[in-house]
Design a protein around this nucleic acid. Structure first.
Lengths: 236, 236
DNA sequence: AAAAAAAGATGATGTAGGTCATGTTTTGAA
DNA sequence: TTCAAAACATGACCTACATCATCTTTTTTT
C-alpha cells in the first residue's frame, strides 16, 4: 500500500515552489531533505484520520486529496480539496488538537511528511512562511464561511453549480480549457454540495439538459461557464 | 453615535490580558497606547462592513459583536460571535482581502482600533502573538467546518440546540450558571442556526415544552443542559 | 401618552429535496 | 471472462421546513 519513496529531493521539487516552502534558504532545504519522509498513497487510501493526533504536516508532491468529516448518519461532508503543492494537517497541528477531518487520496498521490518540530522551527524562524501559513488559514476560513452561508440560504441547484465551479477553481481544466481535471463520483460531488447522491445525479442531468455540462467518460466538461456561474447565482 | 474614548490605557486593560496581546513587552504596550484609537458603538451599529477594505484590526474592550454575511435573499447568516478580548477583522487583513462579513454590535460595545502597520509589526517581531493568531484562525476554521457539516446533515432542531450551546460557549452563563449572558432576538438565533425565524420560534417553544429551556424576559435559561446536548445529538 | 415599529407567536399551505426501492451500467477482483 | 461490488440512474412517495398571512406583545420614538 503506502510505500516509502526516498528518491525525492526537495531542492528540485516542483511542488515545493508552489507551496509555502518556496522561499526556503539552502540550509533549510537540506534540513527539510534530511527530516522529511515520502510515501505514495493509492486512490482511496487515508493520509490521516479524523480524531487522531497530528505529528507533523503533509505536503502533496503529486496527486489529489479530499478532506471530509464523517457525520453521525454516515455521510461524508467534503470540507476541502487539495492538490500538488498544498499542505495538509496544519489546521490540527497549529490548533494543537486532533484532526477534525479525514484526508483521503482521490487518485494515486505522492506526499512528503514533515515532522512537527521542523515545521514549528520554520514557522518560528522564517517570517515568509508564517505569513504564508496565515494567508492559507485566512483563505480556508473565507471559503468555509462562504460555504456556511450557501448551505443555509441557497437551493441545491445553485449549490451544485457552485460545487462544480469550486472543483474547477482547485483542480482547473485540462488543455481543452473546459474539462475538469479530476475524476469524482456523483457521491463525492454530492458531498461537496451537501446534498443526497440521488439529488446530485438528477441536478447534473438537468445541467446536461440545459446544455451547460457534458459527460465524457467519468469526466465533466463545462460547455457554458457563464451559464454555470449564472446557475450558481454568482456574478461573473 | 461612535464617540472617541481616549481614556483607556492598554497597560491596565482587562481585555488585553484575555487577548493575543497578553504577553506584550512594556515598550510594545506603550507603542500600542500611542497608536490605537478607541470608540464605543451603540447596539446595532456596524464596526465594519462586508466588501470594504481593512486598515487595521479591532480589539473588543467590552461588549458583544456578531459577524454576519448578507445573502442575496436579504437574510443574514451569522458566522461568528465575539466578546471582550476578541479580535475582529484579522481574517480579511491577514488574507489581504476585503471584509467578507459585517461586524455589528449586539449591545453597547467599546472597541480599540489598531492600525495595520503596527499589527503586522507585532506579528513579525513577536512570536507569541504569531502563534496565538494562528491558533485563533485554526479554531475559527475548525468551528466553521464543523458548522458546514451540521448544516449539510442535521435537522433544524439539532441545529437550534447546537446554536444555543454555541452561544453559551462564547458568552457563558450568568452567576446562576444557567441563564445565557446575552440578549439575542429570535431572528438572530435563527441566523446562527441557519433557519427561518418562524421555525426558530417554534423550535424554541418546543424546547420550552420539553422543559429544557425557560424564557426570562428577553433572556434564555437552560434548565437541562444534558438534555440540550442530547437534543443537539452531541455526546457530553 | 400615543403612535409606530419591531419582535414574537401561531396557523395554513406548498414544495424542495430527502428517502426508499428497483434496475442498469461500469469497474475491478478473482 | 466471469462475478461481485460500486457507481449511476430513475420513479414513487412523503415530510421537514420555508413561506405567507394574521395577530399580539413589546420596544422605541415622538
Amino acid at each position: 500500500m503506502k510505500k516509502a519513496n526516498p528518491h525525492l529531493d526537495c531542492q528540485f521539487c516542483d511542488a515545493r515552489f508552489k507551496s509555502v516552502f518556496c522561499d526556503l534558504t539552502k540550509a533549510e532545504v537540506s534540513e527539510l531533505n534530511e527530516q522529511k519522509g515520502c510515501a505514495t498513497y493509492k486512490k482511496g487510501q487515508d493520509i490521516f484520520k479524523q480524531e487522531s493526533y497530528p505529528h507533523g504536516i503533509y505536503c502533496i508532491n503529486a496527486g489529489k486529496v479530499k478532506l471530509f468529516q464523517l457525520a453521525e448518519n454516515g455521510r461524508e461532508q467534503i470540507v476541502r480539496l487539495a492538490k500538488s503543492g498544498d499542505l495538509l494537517g496544519y489546521r490540527a497541528l497549529l490548533g494543537g488538537e486532533k484532526y477534525t477531518s479525514t484526508a483521503e487520496a482521490i487518485e494515486e498521490t505522492s506526499i512528503c511528511f514533515i515532522p512537527k518540530q521542523l515545521f514549528f522551527k520554520f514557522v518560528e524562524t522564517n517570517n515568509a512562511i508564517t505569513l504564508q501559513v496565515m494567508k492559507m488559514l485566512s483563505n480556508d476560513l473565507k471559503n468555509a464561511e462562504h460555504k456556511i452561508t450557501d448551505l443555509a440560504q441557497k437551493p441545491v441547484k445553485e449549490r451544485m453549480s457552485e460545487a462544480i465551479l469550486f472543483v474547477k477553481e482547485v483542480y482547473g481544466f485540462e488543455k481543452d480549457n473546459a474539462t475538469l481535471n479530476v475524476v469524482l463520483t456523483r457521491e463525492e460531488i454530492a458531498n461537496i454540495a451537501g446534498t443526497a447522491t440521488e439529488t446530485a445525479i438528477r441536478i447534473l442531468a438537468e445541467l446536461k439538459e440545459d446544455g451547460i455540462l457534458e459527460f465524457i467518460g467519468k469526466k465533466i466538461k463545462v460547455l457554458k461557464i457563464n451559464e454555470l456561474l449564472h446557475s450558481a447565482n454568482l456574478s461573473d
